[in-house]
C-alpha cells in the first residue's frame, strides 16, 4: 500500500514513454489497422451492422438520429470484441516493448 502513489507516478511516466514510442515508430497506427482488420475478419463488423439495421427498423428511421444510434450500438460493439483479438493485440504490444531497448 505504501508505494501506491509511487506506482501511479511510475505508471504515468511509463505510459507517456510507451505511447511516445508507439507513435514515433508508427506501431500505434499498425496496431489500429490490425484491430480494424481483425474486427472485419471475425465478423464483428457484420454483426454490428446487422444490429444497427435492427435498431433502425425497431425505432423507425424518422425517430432516430446518428447520435442515438451510436449510443445504442457502442456498448454492444465493445462487448462483442472477441477476447482473442484483445489478447493478440496485447501480445503484439508486449513483443514490441520487449524489442525496445530504452524503456
Amino acid at each position: 500500500m505504501a508505494d501506491y502513489p509511487d506506482r501511479k507516478v511510475r505508471d504515468a511516466q511509463m505510459r507517456a514513454t510507451i505511447n511516445q514510442k508507439l507513435v514515433e515508430t508508427g506501431e500505434k497506427e499498425r496496431l489500429k489497422e490490425l484491430l480494424r482488420t481483425k474486427l472485419i475478419e471475425c465478423g464483428w463488423r457484420d454483426q454490428l451492422k446487422a444490429y444497427c439495421k435492427e435498431v433502425v427498423r425497431q425505432k423507425g428511421l424518422e425517430h432516430i438520429t446518428v447520435d442515438d444510434l451510436v449510443a445504442e450500438i457502442t456498448p454492444k460493439g465493445r462487448a462483442l470484441v472477441p477476447d482473442s483479438v484483445k489478447k493478440e493485440l496485447l501480445q503484439r504490444i508486449r513483443t514490441f516493448l520487449a524489442q525496445q531497448s530504452n524503456i
Binding site: L31, K32, L35, L48, G77, R78, V85
Partner: peptide
C-alpha cells in the same frame, strides 16, 4: 485502443 477503435467504427 480498442475503445477508441470501437467508438469510431460504431460511428
Amino acid at each position: 485502443l480498442v475503445d477508441d477503435c470501437v467508438s469510431k467504427e460504431c460511428q
